[in-house]
């Protein structure tokens, strides 16, 4: 199913204007093991449900922002600038 995203800069736009940037993950610390870093790079949570994830507004304002989306229904619950309050 297609979907629309509410870009914090540009407002509601169709998904093909955007690039999906993968799930929001926390980076291992500098002194973490090689295994922890390899897992960080390759392993994906891949949930059937809600996920907080990165999106990039490729065809317009070039903003990287965060969205919370249900991967089964494709409903986008919220979008926000990184580190900002939720915009909608």
């Amino acid at each position: 199913m297609s979907l629309q995203l509410n870009c914090p800069n540009c407002g509601v736009r169709p998904v093909w204007e955007f690039h999906y940037g993968g799930p929001l993950k926390s980076r291992p610390t500098q002194d973490a093991s090689a295994e922890a870093w390899t897992s960080y790079i390759y392993h994906k949570p891949n949930p059937r449900g809600d996920q907080k994830e990165w999106w990039y507004h490729r065809s317009a304002c070039k903003l990287w922002f965060l969205a919370e989306r249900n991967t089964q229904s494709n409903n986008v619950h919220t979008t926000q600038r990184f580190g900002a309050e939720e915009s909608k």
Partner: peptide, 13 residues
């Protein structure tokens, strides 16, 4: 499709 999704619905695009 270039984003994670479990939806089985087709798109007009």
């Amino acid at each position: 499709d270039d984003y994670l999704s479990y939806s089985l619905r087709g798109t007009l695009a």
